[in-house]
């Protein structure tokens, strides 16, 4: 099974994960462009636990997608992962691999992709190729990771479609993506992701393109499947409302750095960081009906011109000149799980 030489040193080092399924430490990713390097992710730590959902919240450009693509080694060739970064993942057989050391298109990485870490995306229509049937996509994923006959793979595909709540699965399996409704496509995409029984599911804004009713159904389905299969989920979204429904733990990211982290209760109910507080105020509520929706002032700066110090200081209503623009704040702990990077709390 194990044939990648670069991983032999880390493979026995299972204790470093402390029982976690995935541990990302000091993840730094830069993109080479004609105008120089762009630091998309700058020192991010993430931990995924079996059976739990970690919500990653942030506006576009916050580096949340880039971070999860790095876990799958799906970044484009222009991306550089800093040598000090570490992504440790516990495989199904119990060994721990250092994902940053694997060749992106190598056999071991491919076995992990889809087989142990699966991904679902925002646009199910674009995720499926329009020229192949739903069944073809699912069977491809099964056949890539298991030694089964085509007939068996097909039966598994039908069973999976049934499992994710698609009616009449034996007919749907031979249909093309454009013959399914949006919600059904999202369900089918989950079926593709689950085909090889992954231990980690990365969901990249899977409910953003759906209407609220379907969104609630999909979130319920994902919770149900998590309870049944016990996988860990990394759930990326910009919507704190969705996070409160699905996540156990939350990380709030801004311009490639973590602003605040904690359990979902801590972050939603006792948000400390001005950025998190502003995001929460931007959610429309029944009580605030008829009032103008709160918006965070200014724009997210281009990653080309990252502000020095705390990257949020250019938009922060509580920014302290001479402090926030000088250095990135140290981490302040409010509880063993709740931590914030903000000068407002430093030293308290």
């Amino acid at each position: 099974m194990r044939n990648s030489i670069g991983t032999s040193e880390t493979s026995m080092n299972g204790t470093s994960l402390d029982g976690a399924l995935l541990k990302v430490e000091n993840l730094r990713i830069a993109f080479r462009t004609d105008e120089g390097q762009i630091q998309a992710v700058d020192g991010v730590d993430l931990t995924a636990q079996t059976g739990r959902t970690l919500g990653i919240v942030g506006e576009s450009g916050s580096g949340k997608s880039v971070s999860t693509h790095a876990i799958m080694r799906l970044l484009p060739g222009t991306a550089v992962i800093h040598p000090d970064s570490s992504i440790q993942f516990r495989r199904k057989d119990g060994t721990v691999v250092e994902i940053t050391q694997l060749a992106p298109t190598g056999r071991e990485m491919r076995a992990i992709r889809g087989g142990e870490i699966a991904m679902i995306f925002q646009e199910p229509m674009a995720t499926f190729s329009p020229v192949y049937t739903i069944g073809n996509h699912i069977m491809e994923a099964i056949l890539a990771h298991e030694e089964v006959s085509k007939q068996e793979a097909r039966e598994r595909a039908i069973h999976l479609l049934d499992r994710v709540g698609i009616a009449n699965p034996s007919r749907r399996v031979d249909q093309y993506p454009f013959e399914l409704s949006g919600g059904m496509r999202q369900r089918a995409m989950i079926a593709v992701a689950l085909s090889a029984n992954p231990s980690l599911l990365i969901a990249d804004e899977p409910t953003t393109a759906l209407d609220v009713t379907i969104q609630a159904q999909i979130l319920a389905l994902m919770r149900e499947l998590q309870e049944e299969m016990g996988m860990a989920i990394l759930f990326i979204t910009h919507d704190l409302g969705v996070i409160s429904q699905i996540a156990h733990d939350v990380v709030v990211m801004y311009l490639g750095q973590i602003m605040e982290r904690g359990t979902v209760r801590e972050v939603i109910k006792e948000a400390k960081h001005p950025y998190t507080q502003n995001l929460l105020q931007a959610i429309p509520r029944l009580e605030s009906l008829g009032q103008r929706l709160h918006a965070i002032g200014g724009r997210i700066p281009s990653p080309m011109e990252r502000p020095p110090g705390c990257p949020f200081h250019t938009r922060c209503p509580q920014a302290m000149p001479g402090v926030c623009d000088k250095a990135f704040p140290e981490t302040t702990h409010f509880s063993p799980t709740h931590e914030v990077n903000c000068f407002l709390y430093e030293g308290s």
Binding site: L74, A111, R113, A118, M119, T127, F128, S129, A141
Partner: peptide
């Protein structure tokens, strides 16, 4: 995205 998705399936 379908190409990225296929890569993410380990093809």
């Amino acid at each position: 995205l379908s190409v990225t998705a296929a890569r993410a399936r380990g093809i």
